[in-house]
Design a protein around this nucleic acid. Sequence first.
DNA 1: ACCTGAACACCGTTCAAGT
DNA 2: ACCTGAACACCGTTCAAGT
Lengths: 222, 222
Amino acid sequence: MTTSTARLPNVNDRPDDQDRPNHQDRPYHHGRLRATLLAEAERALQEDGVEALSLRDLARRAGVSHAAPRRHFADRQALLDALAEAGFTRLADEVQAAVEDAGTAAQDAGFSARLRAGAGAYMRFAVRDAALMELMFAAKNTGDSAGPQEAAERLFAVIGGLIGQGQQAGALPSGDPFRFQLLFGATLQGIAAFVTSGRIPPGQADALVTDAVALFTRNAAP
Amino acid sequence: MTTSTARLPNVNDRPDDQDRPNHQDRPYHHGRLRATLLAEAERALQEDGVEALSLRDLARRAGVSHAAPRRHFADRQALLDALAEAGFTRLADEVQAAVEDAGTAAQDAGFSARLRAGAGAYMRFAVRDAALMELMFAAKNTGDSAGPQEAAERLFAVIGGLIGQGQQAGALPSGDPFRFQLLFGATLQGIAAFVTSGRIPPGQADALVTDAVALFTRNAAP
DNA sequence: ACCTGAACACCGTTCAAGT
DNA sequence: ACCTGAACACCGTTCAAGT
């Protein structure tokens, strides 16, 4: 892991280099700093995880001073909230698109296929952006942060709509659709957590999703 | 949130106070530093979350120098791994105890009750120790850290044993018990994640668990 | 309105030295 | 074997000042 040529003090080291202004040949106003910070943050999150995400580092990459992000994000948590919010929106979009791609047939078999397609999109997102997913479902989001919470509702609405269609088509048992939606959503989230935490190999996620869909759609006819 | 008497520079401030040795009237060797650090860490984790967990702070509370923990935990992640490992062990114990308390009747109705009891214990742990739960299922645990992984297997063995009993008693459909176990575990974990992330009110967790157990045990008879 | 620079109070990690 | 003290390279956050 650690190379044998560990870092040694060097005469070329400039101790206060960390915040070296590389923001000289640039207009005083960045223009779209908020968007730049978010984009860099998403990349850093995916590549190195939450821990490695620092405001000072993002500022450096954006070519502004370390205090500049303050205008756009009150603190580090506000940045994380914005990331989670964007994550929910993107996940909702991807699930919806996958469901629509799977056709609009409202028959029994067609519905299972759509459910599987939606669940598959969910899993792909969870595996690709595991750190983001953790952020989205972090316990911290409980108290404040209305942004993520609202974006999350969009995702649940997509799942809820799908469940409703399944019930209308007779592919799912009738019953409180909201509880059905929560249970199915929780199952997806749980499988995702098992995969991203390495409890099960990613290859087995598909089989588990298939099992889950089968379990939910099994006794459709009364 | 912030009081009006914000912190101002004060002549009494001793800049280097942070690591003030409060470890003077103590033998040079602490004796049980590792256990003390873990206990303090568990408390800090529960009260203030992972972010607030610092090795320096733990060292201060234990009354040792900031470099002392190094002997027992190679770095911060090693401490987190140890916490996750202990968490899995404790969760496995609590689920097992709850299942045993619910009786040993292997009949249909008895099994559902035992399954609900185990699931309930899982949820209580997840709500009480939300931050620890996040640590246990963090994506970071993927690569290294064999400790948590092994302790997690104990938990899965408890769930798997329960599933196996249900199948033998005819309370669960026959089929690959391992996949059943994973799916049920994932469902529990997903419900827990929804509760701790505030997606659903804690009061609704019980209803969801009941729904999940009903779904799994529904079509037992072939 | 948006950004900079300096300052403050923290971190984790390393390492020679102490007991 | 276990712990200390000093040092290094980072953090987040604040705030007066600049444009």
